[in-house]
Design a protein around this nucleic acid. Structure first.
Length: 155
DNA sequence: GCCAACGTTGGC
DNA sequence: GCCAACGTTGGC
């Protein structure tokens, strides 16, 4: 089993949106970056655990955790002319973009801020801080545990 | 709202 | 295949 971090702007879609979903489950779609797509399509597996990262907002950081409940399948939005994620160049026989389904696991009582993540020697090494703009990134088991510990300190 | 980082596009 | 122009991301 692997660990991941998915980024989203809570103004667009945050952890409270996920909580409000039927079965607290949603399609994680709209990924339009090739490296993130490769991770999503080729690496992210059923039952993997995911950190929910809130970006571009007041309280930037990790808001909680999710679980992958459906492995990668073609993102339907790429074929929907009316979607902001429509991609005219994508071919139904060879889809360009993929998505997964995730469900809520835990909302942290406090968002774990980027400053505290960067202050911790383990979480400071997370890929999202080394490589900007990667919205689906790997997290090591040690990093995952460190995040859980930080959450325990805040709770 | 600014702007640095950086991925993508498109002309050559 | 190079690289300048452009658009987007995302922290501050």
């Amino acid at each position: 089993m692997s660990y991941w971090v998915f980024k989203s702007e809570p103004g667009e879609y945050g952890i409270d949106h996920l909580i409000a979903e039927k079965n607290k489950t949603t399609r994680w779609d709209g990924i339009r970056n090739y490296q993130a797509r490769n991770n999503l399509r080729d690496q992210v597996a059923l039952s993997d655990l995911v950190l929910f990262y809130h970006s571009s907002c007041k309280k930037i950081g990790i808001a909680g955790t999710m679980k992958v409940v459906k492995a990668a399948y073609p993102d339907p939005a790429q074929f929907d002319r009316h979607s902001r994620y429509y991609d005219a160049k994508s071919d139904r026989d060879n889809p360009r973009w993929y998505c997964v389904d995730v469900c809520m696991v835990e909302k942290f009582t406090e968002v774990i801020s980027t400053s505290s993540l960067k202050a911790n020697p383990v979480t400071a090494e997370m890929q999202i801080f080394k490589q900007s703009r990667l919205s689906v990134a790997a997290v090591s088991a040690a990093q995952w545990r460190a995040v859980q510990r930080l959450n325990g300190q805040l709770a």
